[in-house]
Write a protein that binds this DNA or RNA. Structure first.
Lengths: 136, 136
DNA sequence: TAATTAGTTCAACAATCATTGATCTATTAG
DNA sequence: CTAATAGATCAATGATTGTTGAACTAATTA
């Protein structure tokens, strides 16, 4: 899938919707502390299930579970050792991360946030009143 | 909180852990399709509850719920209309987004992924065998 | 062949969370 | 004072999902 954000209004409802859903799926996967720690370890070059489990003090089956989820959204790849095929190595998918960081940077770029142009309300002047609403 | 990733090994266990947890919390919030759609609308300048609800075909209380969650992680800010205080306007927190995009870009930068240096396994040659593991 | 090893898969449980409908608050209009 | 408006809060529900322990596969070793 080509992951770019449309700048024209035309394809906004169809194309962008798919991009947003794909982005949401990946961010949801990354929005889990243990998975984010796994990604951090993979960045450092750690790669087999046991190493990850040792570093994070997690059971192998749980590591396996999170790696599967990371794989399902294309962020992680798998290799088997050519000498001893019992060992399986995991690594980050560089192409996927390149695409993701580009999309993320574009989507959340503060510079691209447009000014308010309300289509409802009295359209009166607005006064900043942060923290008026109580948040527990 | 200062959100930068340590490059030295020293503070990796303490400082980075907090950064990763904060990052995970924000990504988790953004990893929800409807919230991501709300963010997209806020990027376009749409801001009041009713506008968001109309655009997304969601009930006001649900919009309210998601906006609260976006606020709790600092991504969204609130203003009240100075003329008619019944109207509440939501907007993206530019500073928070700037910090987030910088951290995200650094954390997931493909160029910073280190090569494998396994501390376990037979350390034999590795052959690429993608999709060996069945994923349903 | 039998025993280890590395890792996955499965079933069950508990916690989290998005959604819904109803109620409540605050503000403005009549 | 009495609606009406904009929106938040509350309680309940159903689905999703992280975690756990046990069983299972596949590969290697003795």
């Amino acid at each position: 899938m080509q992951l770019t954000l449309s700048t024209n209004k035309l394809s906004e409802t169809t194309e962008d919707a798919a991009v947003i859903e794909q982005l949401a799926r990946q961010l949801k996967v990354l929005g889990e502390p243990n998975r984010l720690r796994i990604v951090q370890l993979l960045r450092e070059g750690v790669q087999c299930n046991c190493e990850l489990g040792d570093a994070l003090e997690m059971a192998p089956n749980l590591i396996s579970h999170h790696l599967r989820i990371l794989r399902e959204v294309g962020l992680v790849e798998v290799e088997r050792d050519a000498v001893d095929a019992r060992w399986i190595y995991y690594s980050l998918n560089r192409a996927a991360l390149k695409e993701l960081t580009a999309l993320f940077g574009a989507f959340f770029d503060p510079a691209r946030i447009k000014e308010r142009h309300p289509s409802c309300g009295p359209q009166g002047s607005v006064v900043r009143t942060d923290e008026i609403l109580v948040v527990t």
